[in-house]
Amino acid sequence: MSENRHQALGLTDEDVLNMYETMLLARKVDERMWKLNRAGKIPFVISCQGQEAAQVGAAYALNREKDVVAPYYRDIGVVLTFGMTAQDLMLSGFAKAEDPNSGGRQMPGHFGSKALRILTQSSPVTTQVAHAVGAALAGRLKGEEMVTFTTFGEGSSNQGDFHESANFAGVHKLPVIFMCENNQYAISVPVQKQLACERVSDRAIGYGMFGETVDGNDPLAVYAAIKKARERAIRGEGPSLIETISYRLTPHSSDDDDRSYRAADEVEEAKKRDGVFTFASYLESVGVLTEGKSSEIVERCEKCVDEATEYAEAAPYAEPESALHYVYEE
């Protein structure tokens, strides 16, 4: 038996099995979206594949009743952890009226749900980072014990809104966790052409905040980093910048072809470190994930995705004229 790392973090066997199941469900939802796209049933997919460990590990370290998240477009793992369902995601994929994110108005990957404390997202990158800072400021003004959590890619960490927002949060010591999901590529441009510093987390010092880089394929490492960041924020010690290193296993989106800018063996090599599989191996090695348990989880996820797909495909679109609604308060 290997060393039990999750108990040391205060996580039960049930917790880590839930985390694993959420990661696997995120992967299965994503894989199904690609199939539906290639079959011509949905127009667009943008993937979480390769980042589920970071997403689920981080979201599990938050308080889902008190905290607010401002995720970016790959964060299926974050929103599933915060209560969104596979059916919700499929309704979004099919752009149906019942999609809780936008009623089919936005592309998939543009998450949002007031009930689930997920701020609504757009496509211009890092605008949500400022919103997370604003929600943290609002939380402080209202006297709530909460943090906000926002994510973005390493390419996006060059945007002005990231820097303006990080500085704002640093100056005002706001309870914000900035998490950069460094997946090595911003569409086709590799990280070496995005950053002049070695790590995104090196930027933390410029904003007077704690910075740390962790293995994004290891949900327990990410959980530990975010948990500590949350504790610092609650203690009034201000924001943190956590960078998770993983690898984008799919092309940027369903409209991209990554063979034009990266070698197939590079992707194959990265798959060996895929968090969904390495975490399963860990859980097996500590005797938590038995063979029986594993097939039970896989079956449950697959059934869930099947049912979600069937439901969403059959669900109605919004009425065309409904496009005129909700420009202003009605």
Binding site: G134, A138, N167
Partner: peptide, 28 residues
Amino acid sequence: EARVIDTPLTESAIAGVGIGAAMYGMRP
């Protein structure tokens, strides 16, 4: 100073932070 906030010199953050606070129940 909690309700009349001198911000850093950052117009996008002034708008963006305001928007975030507005979404979370304030009237900036």
